[in-house]
Simulated assay, not measured.
Amino acid sequence: MIEVAIVGAGPAGSYCAYKLAENTIYPHIFDYSHPREKPCGGLVYVGAQELFPFLKMIPVPHSERSTMTMITPSGRKVVIGFRKGKLMGFSRLKFDRYLLDMAVNEGANLVEEKVIGLERKYGWWKIRTPKQSYAVKTVIGADGVNSMIRRKISSSLSKMDKGICFGYFAKGLENEDITIKFLPDIKGYIWIIPRGDDTSIGVGSAEIRHGHELKKELDSFINSFCPQAEKISEW
């Protein structure tokens, strides 16, 4: 029987696995897709670095900025400086791979299978994948906003708790400041986050009904604010 199973090998699941293994509890991490790139700015805030000091020395290509430019819905710019530490921008593919490697190197076991079922069985859990079933004492769900584990033991998140985003990875903006532009008519914002080798340019909103308008807002912003951006992929 498996002592601990972690479903999801993103940052939360991988770091949890690393800390467990560091304390001689060697979990099994179930994930068939990580590490991967994903629609995410990849920004690591100063406060997170204080909580997890290893981030300050992580050997992964990234950007560092001591300021951030905020643009109000009316177009006013405000530059915010950080006295302690710097903001860091990462590729999620490279960042997630590093954390997963940390966990595996410490002794965690990676099971590259998709969890498709979870049942409670007389004081233990039965995890089911397309290949086989596993008996598990403790299950930790770290499988994201659409978590299957959450749906099985509680309920799905409501639409009010979700958002929508759209964006590009681009070249030509690696020396730009981290920029956040708040939208005038939608509860959301556009971001520019250099990540070392490229830049994430995206837009997100908690108002899912405005999803069709977000791409127009983002493309208009890019054309006027950073026309030099060379889009290399879309998400």
Rank of each mutant, 00 (worst) to 15 (best):
E112I: 06
T69F: 09
I58M: 13
K86P: 08
V79G: 10
G117P: 13
G41P: 12
I25A: 04
A48M: 08
V78K: 11
N23W: 05
K77V: 03
R36C: 01
S91A: 14
G123F: 02
G107P: 09
I80H: 08
A48C: 09
E22S: 12
S33K: 15
F54L: 07
G107E: 02
F82R: 09
Y15W: 14
N23G: 13
I58Y: 01
T69N: 10
S14F: 00
C16G: 13
V7I: 12
V46C: 05
Y45E: 15
K56P: 06
N105T: 05
N146E: 13
Y134F: 14
Y26P: 06
P11W: 03
W125I: 01
G10Y: 04
V139I: 13
V104T: 04
R83W: 04
K114N: 13
L93E: 14
H34C: 12
E119T: 13
A135I: 10
I116Y: 02
M102E: 12
M70F: 11
I25C: 08
G89C: 01
E64S: 12
Y26V: 08
E37T: 05
R92M: 14
Y18G: 15
E106I: 08
G8S: 03
L55H: 06
N146V: 07
M70T: 13
K137Y: 10
A9L: 05
D96F: 08
N105M: 04
K121G: 02
G81K: 07
I58Q: 04
R120S: 15
I6M: 00
H34T: 13
E64C: 05
D31N: 07
K84H: 12
N105P: 06
S133N: 08
A17L: 07
V115E: 00
S14W: 03
S133G: 04
E50P: 07
A103K: 01
S66E: 14
E50L: 13
E106D: 05
H28P: 09
A9R: 11
S63H: 05
F52P: 07
